[in-house]
Design a protein around this nucleic acid. Structure first.
Length: 139
DNA sequence: ATTCTGACTTGTG
DNA sequence: TCACAAGCCAGAA
């Protein structure tokens, strides 16, 4: 085979994967950009997920409002720059039961999506040690 | 090719 | 908790 430079990663494919992951987020739950990125095979690609959301269209019928920005260890928040879009996202989430604190943050402890325990029904007894294999102490 | 920008995240102070 | 810097990735100029 002649010299064939490593072809660039199929961006479109990755976007498709991102949308696929987003569709798995259950109603009333939220996932962070970073979380969606990892599940899509794009570690560190949180910004790419944000772009994918922005590029999404209504025809896709994508639950984009369930993807939020991480604020701290157990909290998330709306990260859309456009104030109108941000308000829409919040409204849509509240409509499906997601509660916002006075500071405008969402408790991941209460509404964070747990991909691993997605179908088994999140019992009240959800193991605290997230699905993270290796993680030093608390981050 | 280089620089800027953003629906990101994490570390510091 | 807030502000700022750095690292990060893809698209636009």
């Amino acid at each position: 085979m002649p010299t064939r430079k490593a072809e660039p990663p199929p961006i479109a494919e990755l976007y498709g994967e991102i949308y696929r992951v987003v569709r798995r987020i259950p109603r009333g739950r939220v996932a962070t950009y970073g979380q969606v990125a990892e599940l899509s095979g794009l570690p560190g690609g949180s910004r790419t997920v944000g772009r994918a959301m922005k590029l999404s269209t209504p025809q896709m019928r994508l639950p984009w409002q369930r993807v939020v920005g991480r604020k701290s260890r157990g909290a998330a928040r709306v990260s859309i720059l456009d104030p109108v879009g941000g308000a829409v996202q919040r409204m849509l989430l509240e409509k499906e039961g997601v509660k916002f604190s006075t500071a405008g943050s969402i408790s991941l402890h209460a509404f964070g999506w747990l991909p691993a325990a997605d179908s088994p029904a999140r019992l009240a007894n959800v193991p605290r040690g997230d699905a993270r294999p290796k993680k030093r102490k608390r981050r």
